[in-house]
Design a protein around this nucleic acid. Structure first.
Length: 236
DNA sequence: CATCGAAGGTGCCTCAAGGC
DNA sequence: GCCTTGAGGCACCTTCGATG
């Protein structure tokens, strides 16, 4: 299964059940608990920070799970947090996910076959009702937050990290880099992702969320530098 | 045990472009 | 001309790992 609203509800339910308080996961507004600030709502001075790390770790593990069977078919391991000093993957800035020939965190460059950078977050908006109900109240166009690849910051971070790998030495030249998101991109990056692909810097930006909204969205870029994955077969 | 730095993803502010 | 919309950039807070 690719990313959908159930995935997001699952994240909230599991986090609430095992370790997180509602205040860590949702905005606590006067009218209730919200995943994002709905448009036209007052944020009441809040900027939620406590969810960031949690959703970051969740999405990186989620990507590992969905890619593991594919890696195995190629005789490779899908590993989170891969370190390889010679291509700028340090302990503090490791590869979110990578396909490797050996099942270890620290790798030699020649054993890394594919690098993923994960840039995913909660996409739609939800309202939490005590004790454990999480209900969809709108897609990403209905709230103030820009999820995943729709944020310029996220695109710049992904591009910057990829360039950092590319300029670290000749060892990094032949390893493909894929950016994984769960939202579309903005129109202003459509041509840029195609140029990054043709220039050989980043081999693709993939959205693993087939239905981010019921209204219009950018499904793919002209040269397929950005694509929306619609089933697991296509992903392979 | 304390400190520091980096990465995680959020809302706010500004400004330019487009619609009327 | 004014108003709306959206992209870009910034500051923010939390967490975690490395280092002293």
């Amino acid at each position: 299964m690719l990313w959908n609203e159930e995935t997001e509800k699952h994240f909230f339910r599991e986090a609430l059940k095992s370790f997180a308080s509602p205040e860590q996961l949702f905005y606590n507004l006067q009218s209730g608990y919200y995943a994002y600030i709905p448009k036209d709502f007052d944020s009441e001075g809040q900027t939620l920070q406590s969810r960031n790390s949690l959703i970051g770790q969740f999405t990186e593990k989620w990507c590992k799970q969905i890619f593991s069977p594919i890696a195995e078919e190629f005789g490779l391991y899908a590993i989170n947090g891969v370190v390889c000093e010679e291509i700028a993957l340090t302990k503090s800035s490791s590869a979110d996910l990578a396909f490797c020939t050996k099942n270890t965190i620290t790798q030699k460059a020649e054993d890394i076959k594919l690098i993923f950078e994960v840039k995913m977050s909660i996409v739609s908006n939800y309202k939490f009702e005590q004790p454990d109900a999480v209900n969809l109240i709108g897609d990403y166009k209905s709230h103030k937050g820009n999820p995943s690849l729709l944020r310029s910051d996220s695109m710049l971070k992904a591009i910057g990290k990829s360039i950092n790998i590319r300029v670290s030495g000749s060892n990094a030249n032949t390893i493909p880099i894929i950016i994984l998101g769960n939202s579309p991109i903005t129109s202003t990056y459509s041509k840029k992702v195609d140029f990054l692909k043709s220039a050989g810097v980043i081999q693709g930006f993939y959205s693993l969320n087939p239905n981010p909204t019921k209204s219009d969205f950018i499904f793919e870029s002209p040269e397929k530098g950005f694509i929306t994955i619609t089933d697991v077969k296509e992903l392979k």
